[in-house]
């Protein structure tokens, strides 16, 4: 049963048709790799799912209910979280503060609500343990490696018990060793029944974790098939247009 279903999604910016009748669905515990060249419409699609943009036409259903996201908070409240390419981390805050940003746990100090650091640190520690990451909750993010930073960003989605996690280029611009770390994080999410959508340019990474691959070309979905029935060569051909569709 699909948890997220996009039907006939189109989006135009003035005269530019960014997305054209895209149908896509995502199951719980499934990892979908979304691929496509620059400008193919990947980011637009993600932003529509995340509530940054409203689609020009078409509908989104979440857990079999029609939903409309007017702002990112609407999507987050439903359980859809995005991990942006830049990870949206504040370098000057600790890992725990980043995870709890906008969702801080407070306790009352007299009649004043104050931050409950011990509770937030403990919860953050548990989250990192679940993700099998060695990130320290009380450490400032600017001191961290690419893999640890990714763990903090993904940690946010764990906090809200997100059902759908969108990862925008999770393995771009990090070292090989850290890529393995990030792929492991994705596998942990899948194991816990989270539906994951990865957007990436890096073919081997996508094939390493994805159950299914979807390809966008010039705003149109040209392929949507099981990863083990496809190949990097075929996907490359689909992206460039050497093969029309598959």
């Amino acid at each position: 049963m699909s948890i997220l279903k996009l039907e006939n999604i189109s989006k135009s910016f003035g005269a530019v048709q960014a997305l054209d009748g895209v149908n896509l669905s995502l199951d719980a515990g499934e990892v979908l790799g979304l691929m496509g060249d620059n400008g193919a419409g990947k980011s637009t699609l993600v932003k529509i799912i995340a509530g940054n943009f409203k689609q020009s036409s078409g509908s989104i259903s979440f857990e079999n209910q029609n939903v409309e996201f007017l702002k990112p908070m609407d999507a987050r409240n439903k359980g859809i979280e995005v991990v942006y390419q830049d990870l949206a981390l504040c370098d000057n805050l600790t890992a725990a503060s980043n995870i709890f940003l906008t969702r801080e746990i407070t306790k009352s100090f007299g009649f004043i609500p104050i931050l409950n650091f011990s509770k937030m640190f403990q919860r953050a520690k548990d989250i990192f343990k679940e993700l099998k990451s060695e990130t320290l909750p009380e450490e400032e993010v600017r001191m961290m490696s690419g893999g640890q930073r990714q763990a903090v960003a993904i940690g946010r989605t764990k906090l809200s018990q997100a059902k759908v996690v969108l990862l925008d280029e999770p393995t771009a611009a990090i070292s090989v060793r850290q890529v393995a770390e990030v792929l492991e994080l994705i596998k942990q999410l899948k194991k816990q029944g989270v539906a994951v959508l990865i957007i990436s340019h890096r073919m081997p990474d996508v094939f390493a974790v994805s159950d299914r691959i979807a390809v966008l070309r010039r705003g149109k979905l040209v392929a949507n098939k099981k990863a083990n029935e496809s190949s990097p060569e075929e996907v490359t051909a689909l992206i460039t247009g050497a093969i029309e569709s598959a």
Binding site: Y84, N92, L93, I112
Partner: peptide, 24 residues
């Protein structure tokens, strides 16, 4: 040091774009 407002102020300074994108 101890309030949500304080943390939010540091977050806005640390990365305004990120703070905005996660709903601050």
């Amino acid at each position: 040091k101890y309030t949500v407002l304080g943390t939010n102020i540091y977050a806005v300074g640390g990365n305004p774009k990120a703070a905005r994108s996660i709903g601050l």
